[in-house]
Amino acid sequence: MTLRITGYRTLTTVQEWGRPVGDANGVFADGITSVPIVMVDTDEGITGVGLGPHLDIDAIFDAIEGEDPRAVTALYDRMLRQTFKAGHAGRVFGTIGALDSALWDIKAQAAGQPLWRLLGGRDRTVAAYASGLDIGLTDEQLVAVYREYAEHGLQAAKLKGGLDVERDKHRLGLVRQVLAEPGHVRRPGLMLDANECWNRKQAVRYIGEIEQALDLIWVEEPVRRWDADGLATVSRGVRAAVATGENLTGLEQYRPLVAAGAVDIVQTAAVWGVTHFLRVAALAHAYDLPVSPIGTTPMALLHAATSVPNHLTSELQDLRPPFGVSVDLEVEDGVFVLGESPGLGVTVDEHAIAASTQRSNTAAADTPNVRPEHAGRRLLAAADGARGTVMPRLPAVR
């Protein structure tokens, strides 16, 4: 079969959470977040889907137009070279990742196989943990959200925190109780994600206080993502593992962290693509480090996770896919169960998405996408003054 890339389409849908979602940097109060999509077409009528940004896609697509999409790893490097002068960090790396995932989707469809099987996976189940993006929830909402996760067999949970140590201990305790309810796991796993809101000594003190009351599997992004010395300081100063990597773009950004002993759990974001994940996983495996994908709808990386020896667990955020998107995937007994559909098993209803009027204001100053002015420079890691003046207090502990 001759197979050539002929064009692409972009669209943006939304994830409708039905509740506030966010982290220490801000909250989407309306519970609506954007989900950009890239669709790549071929001359044989096979279309691949990639969930991720499409910034500068015209220039990047020039590197792959007219090529055989089955040469996906070589095309990935062509896309990286296409951004040589300006660099490929940030959303540009996301565009490359979205196109890369779409090409893997095409390759697996052309082979008539689900991607997990094409990549050499033996088992289509992938371990999962619950992640509610939950810092803006009341106690009652928090319990309800994690009870739903527990009903799907989830045995570990990652909470957002970092602004109020007493409240974080309280909320972690609530979720532990929910996951340990009769019929669920006896000893749930707990993680805390600070989203880079501390300095290094503050992180050690804060986590140390939590660890007097609770056992944490890992603490995620306790300091800035690129701070190898700071992350290593935290890792040495606490019992929990340090997890980071979801915002790193390219192997060159991981090397200093690995060399400094600054990362215990190596993460990659779903939007950075399959090839990036496979290369990061190989790097981590060389140092006996586990990998863990991050993302709202991490379909492509779930497929890839079945084929690497050091996958630990993958993040499960919303139990429902984005609006207008369907996935051949179930969550049962605490694991993702991938289907047998050829490719990624992702179907996009372009007409429904085009007709929808739902939009998310991702650039608003009080959302997680904008770093607060005094993040990492607060005398106390507390809600007051989180954005330079006064941040509204989270719901009181009762």
Results as ranks from 00 to 15, higher is better:
Asp168Thr: 04
Leu172Lys: 01
Leu172Ala: 00
Val175His: 03
Val175Leu: 01
Val175Met: 03
Arg176Val: 00
Gln177Arg: 14
Leu179Thr: 00
Leu179Pro: 03
Leu179Ala: 00
Ala180Gly: 09
Ala180His: 01
Ala180Ser: 15
Ala180Asp: 09
Glu181Arg: 03
Pro182Gln: 06
Gly183Met: 07
His184Asn: 14
Arg186Lys: 10
Arg187Asp: 13
Gly189Asn: 01
Gly189Val: 01
Leu190Ser: 00
Asp193Gln: 02
Asp193Phe: 00
Ala194Gln: 07
Asn195Asp: 04
Glu196Asn: 10
Cys197Gln: 13
Asn199Ala: 06
Arg200Gln: 12
Lys201Ile: 05
Gln202Asn: 08
Val204Phe: 06
Arg205Asn: 14
Ile207Leu: 13
Glu209Pro: 05
Ile210Ala: 03
Glu211Ile: 02
Gln212Gly: 08
Gln212Arg: 14
Asp215His: 11
Ile217His: 13
Ile217Arg: 12
Trp218Ile: 00
Glu221Ser: 02
Glu221Phe: 00
Arg224His: 13
Arg225Ala: 15
Trp226Tyr: 10
Trp226Cys: 08
Trp226Val: 07
Leu231Gln: 15
Val234Cys: 08
Ser235Lys: 12
Ser235His: 08
Ser235Asn: 07
Gly237Ala: 05
Val238Tyr: 03
Gly245Lys: 02
Gly245Ser: 05
Gly245Leu: 02
Glu246Tyr: 04
Asn247Phe: 11
Leu248Gly: 01
Thr249Met: 10
Leu251Asn: 12
Glu252Met: 08
Glu252Phe: 11
Tyr254Ile: 12
Pro256Val: 04
Leu257Ile: 08
Ala260Cys: 03
Ala260Met: 04
Ala260Glu: 09
Val263Ser: 02
Asp264Ser: 10
Asp264Tyr: 00
Asp264Met: 00
Val266Asp: 11
Gln267Lys: 13
Ala269Arg: 13
Ala270Asp: 09
Ala270Arg: 15
Val271Pro: 11
Trp272Leu: 11
Trp272Ser: 12
Gly273Asn: 09
Thr275Trp: 06
Thr275Pro: 01
Thr275Arg: 07
Arg279Asp: 13
Ala282Lys: 07
Ala284Trp: 04
Ala284Gln: 05
His285Asp: 15
His285Asn: 14
Ala286His: 02
Asp288Phe: 10
Asp288Ser: 12
Leu289Ser: 09
Pro290His: 10
Ser292Trp: 05
Pro293Asp: 08
Ile294Gln: 13
Gly295Met: 09
Thr296Tyr: 13
Thr296Ala: 12
Thr296Met: 14
Thr297Tyr: 12
Thr297Arg: 09
Thr297Glu: 12
Met299Pro: 09
Met299Cys: 11
Leu301Phe: 04
Leu301Met: 06
His303Gly: 07
His303Leu: 11
Ala305Phe: 10
Ala305Gln: 09
Ala305Trp: 10
Pro309Ala: 14
Pro309Glu: 08
